[in-house]
């Protein structure tokens, strides 16, 4: 047996275990972009919070139940009857701030992901089609995208929300539709440059159909910008949701949307209790910050032109 092992002439095949395929790139990424990796970690935590909060698992108290006797308690206090503990205090209606922040994070994260799920596939499909077909069709599709983009985003969102009525899901459709032009533009650009490659011509020569070239050859090559785009679309969607809620045309009370928390209690009680405005504000900022930072790190990692020395 021992002899057989030593004299084995089998060629050494590089093993591609799960560890090599998943952990090595992850490790390399976090070594070169520690901040980006830290932000990715934060995002993972935020998503876990979001999922748990959706099922009411980690919420210490009911985020919408108010109790007059517990109004405006400070950080780390117990309620007047001594039964409930408030890590971050309570708001002007005696609702637990910590639970409200967790629930608000859930709303923001779900909103952002929902917008990305709708706008990125739709936008990419439009961009891919438009660039691939080219000619007049491309021109007309791009004019339509122009027309949507020419209109100030918030102004159109306000108009759509006033038609559908205020509320998170009405705002959701407005934001999702208005987010389509950006992925369409970016993907169109990438497809246009990918189309110039020799391998597209080669694929056509061996008789590939248009559909096959589009989905099997070009699409995988524009996946990289799509991932980067996803992080920006998410970030923009979260900010827009917060803005609509802040203006009072998004989430309606008592829904604990982060933007709504800023207007409802934040602006009224800021002199005595600035934390009512600052805590939700910081939560939104951190969410959006980590998404942008993560997107930047991925972009740098995927774009070798800007790397290294001159």
């Amino acid at each position: 047996m021992a002899l057989a092992e030593t004299t084995s002439t089998k060629p050494v095949v590089p093993t591609t275990s799960i560890v090599d395929r998943v952990w090595t790139p992850l490790w390399k990424f976090s070594k070169h972009w520690p901040v980006g990796a830290a932000c990715a970690g934060l995002l993972v935590i935020a998503s876990i919070i979001a999922i748990l909060a959706a099922f009411d698992v980690i919420l210490p108290h009911d985020p919408t139940a108010f109790k007059g006797s517990d109004r405006l308690l400070g950080l780390g206090t117990t309620s007047r009857d001594g039964e409930r503990f408030f890590l971050l205090g309570t708001d002007n209606l005696g609702r637990d701030m910590f639970s409200r922040l967790l629930k608000g994070t859930q709303i923001s994260v779900f909103f952002g992901i929902g917008v990305a799920i709708i706008s990125i596939p739709f936008g990419s499909a439009i961009g891919l089609f438009s660039a691939f077909v080219g000619g007049k069709t491309d021109l007309y599709i791009q004019r339509v995208m122009d027309a949507i983009q020419v209109f100030p985003f918030l102004v159109l969102a306000i108009a759509i929300v006033s038609i559908l009525g205020p509320g998170i899901w009405q705002g959701f459709w407005a934001v999702a539709i208005l987010s389509i032009p950006r992925p369409a533009r970016v993907i169109r650009g990438s497809v246009l440059s990918a189309k110039q490659n020799m391998w597209v011509e080669a694929a056509r020569c061996i008789g590939c159909s248009d559909n096959r070239i589009m989905y099997r050859h070009i699409l995988p090559n524009v996946m990289a910008p799509m991932i980067v785009l996803a992080s920006y679309v998410l970030a923009t969607a979260i900010i827009t949701e917060a803005t609509l809620s802040f203006l009072g045309i998004g989430a309606q009370p008592p829904t604990p949307s982060l933007g709504a928390m800023l207007t409802q209690s934040g602006t009224t009680f800021f002199k005595t209790n600035p934390r009512l405005a600052i805590l939700p504000g910081i939560t939104i900022s951190m969410l959006v910050f980590s998404m942008n930072m993560f997107g930047d790190a991925i972009r740098d990692a995927l774009d070798p032109r800007l790397r290294g020395s001159r």
Binding site: T243, F246, G259, G281, S285, V288, M291
Partner: peptide
Amino acid sequence: IGISVPNFFLGILFII
């Protein structure tokens, strides 16, 4: 940070 902090939050910080 400049991109991530929502307009209205920065504005409210100013006011507070």
